[in-house]
């Protein structure tokens, strides 16, 4: 029964993924990314993880892709030029690493062919996720937040250094 929902969601996710790298306009890429994220949210729902599904929409679709769009619009609004490839031979590297990743994924899914037990009662609810985060895995959770903080502070420091030629300092 869940195939009715899973297959369209999976097809949409793959189509969106192709769209992200195939689209010529950066804004179209961002919208394709949105399609991927929305289809992933649907698959989370199928796995009985409602809380994660909604968070996926709020955080990724609602905040992160909006920021992407902001940057795209402010930086290359309609400049028409394609992205410059800075890394030498990055296409070759991309193909190699992508196939390695695909192999790892396939190996993982083949290894996990045994039928899964149905989700236990209360799985995927906000209470369940909250308990996992704040009780069971408290230390990794706090460490992750410290790492994120480091990233934010680093960004502020980089920006604070300012432009080299000094006009317009406030």
């Amino acid at each position: 029964m869940e195939w009715v929902i899973f297959v369209p969601a999976a097809v949409l996710a793959i189509a969106g993924g192709v769209g992200v790298i195939a689209a010529r306009q950066p804004v179209h890429s961002a919208i394709a990314l949105l399609v991927v994220l929305a289809s992933l949210a649907v698959t989370y729902l199928l796995l009985a993880a409602q809380f994660i599904a909604v968070l996926q929409v709020i955080i990724y679709a609602g905040a992160i892709v909006v920021l992407f769009l902001f940057v795209i619009m402010l930086l290359h609004a309609r400049s028409g030029e394609g992205p410059v490839e800075k890394l030498p031979r990055q296409r070759v590297a991309a193909v190699v690493f992508a196939s390695l990743f695909l192999a790892a994924l396939l190996a993982g899914s083949v290894a996990a062919t045994r039928p899964l037990a149905p989700a236990p009662e209360g799985f995927g609810t906000a209470q369940h996720v909250g308990e996992a985060l704040f009780v069971t895995y408290l230390l990794p959770f706090e460490l992750a937040s410290v790492i994120l903080m480091v990233g934010i502070i680093a960004a502020v420091v980089v920006v604070k250094r300012g432009p080299p030629a000094g006009r317009g300092g406030r």
């Binding site: 409602q50 909604v54 968070l55 709020i58 679709a61 609602g62 609810t125 906000a126």
Partner: peptide
């Protein structure tokens, strides 16, 4: 009566930004 109802509302409003 979704058990994450209010989050769904917030999520929909963040999609409206698009």
């Amino acid at each position: 009566d979704v058990n994450v109802g209010i989050l769904l509302v917030l999520g929909a409003s963040s999609i409206g930004v698009y």
